[in-house]
């Protein structure tokens, strides 16, 4: 294959994003796009002047962290428990990855239908006599902490991480674990000394990608998130489709902030990996 193509590959894959960033940067200072009136930093000033920005950013980071952590834990547990060998564990692995192709939009719709205060869970609770009206059901969607959104996003991302975890354990985990057993390690010791490190290192890039994606995802968020704090993707879209075109510049400021979140996650990961390599 191409031996010297790394630079070219990087260039090709990054250029469209860089064009997007350039456009947003120009639009954020009033040089491009609807409502642009020549160079001005007004959009930056008013975006940062809005208290909704920091709270929305913090909230999005919380939801992304919680959902990514939940999905990762579930993937590790399922991968560690259902190892190849028996038929039932094969079925379990298949069931685990089944929701993989589900779109975030469909996942969000399901979240509303199941978790809403008048959703299927609430109806079941009503039938069981536990609640007498929707308001008696705990608020799982449009709630301050984003519980329903976190559950839905974790459920949606879990199959992706599980698929990679299965693959990691099948490729490298098995041989290493056998070696560890030959050397006398047992049960829990094998897990913590071999299985866990293999999963953790192998899963990290996917976990970072999931985090960056979840922090910026719009479809499930708009269906399940509260209006205060307003998640960063919602705040961005609200500015982008505001009735007054004057808000478009602010939308591009928020776009750039979202980009910093995604790139920040990647940079942290790369830095951690570099440190890891030096340490070992």
């Amino acid at each position: 294959m191409i031996r010297r193509g790394a630079g070219l590959a990087a260039f090709l894959v990054a250029t469209p994003v860089l064009i997007g960033i350039a456009y947003s940067a120009l639009a954020s200072v009033g040089l491009l796009g609807p409502g642009s009136t020549g160079f001005s930093t007004a959009s930056w000033a008013s975006a940062f002047d809005d208290p909704q920005l920091l709270r929305g950013l913090g909230w999005s980071l919380w939801v992304a962290s919680a959902a990514t952590a939940l999905a990762t834990m579930a993937a590790v547990v399922v991968a560690a428990l259902f190892r190849p060998g028996t038929r039932s564990s094969g079925v379990a692995r298949l069931l685990a990855v089944m929701p993989l192709p589900l779109s975030h939009l469909a996942a969000g719709v399901l979240g509303v239908l199941v978790l809403g205060q008048s959703g299927l869970l609430a109806r079941g609770a009503f039938m069981a006599g536990w609640i007498d009206q929707p308001a008696a059901m705990p608020a799982l969607i449009y709630d301050q902490w984003g519980i329903g959104l976190i559950v839905v996003l974790a459920w949606k991302e879990f199959p992706f991480l599980a698929l990679i975890a299965f693959s990691l354990l099948a490729d490298r985990g098995r041989a290493l674990e056998e070696a560890a057993r030959t050397l006398g390690a047992r049960g829990r010791a094998v897990f913590w000394a071999v299985t866990w490190p293999v999963l953790w290192r192998g899963l990290m890039p996917a976990v970072v990608a999931v985090f960056a994606f979840v922090a910026g995802t719009y479809e499930a968020t708009v269906l399940l998130a509260p209006s205060d704090p307003l998640a960063l993707p919602l705040l961005t879209m609200e500015r982008y489709t505001d009735v007054g075109v004057a808000k478009r510049g602010e939308a591009h400021v928020l776009v750039l902030i979202g980009l910093v979140v995604g790139i920040g996650a990647v940079a942290l990961h790369e830095a951690a990996r570099a440190r890891d390599r030096r340490a070992t």
Binding site: A10, V13, V17, G20, A212, Y240, V255, L256, L259
Partner: peptide, 12 residues
């Protein structure tokens, strides 16, 4: 560079 399009929000 490969991470860029994955990490960038779609609107960007």
């Amino acid at each position: 560079a490969a991470f860029l399009p994955v990490a960038a929000p779609p609107v960007a």
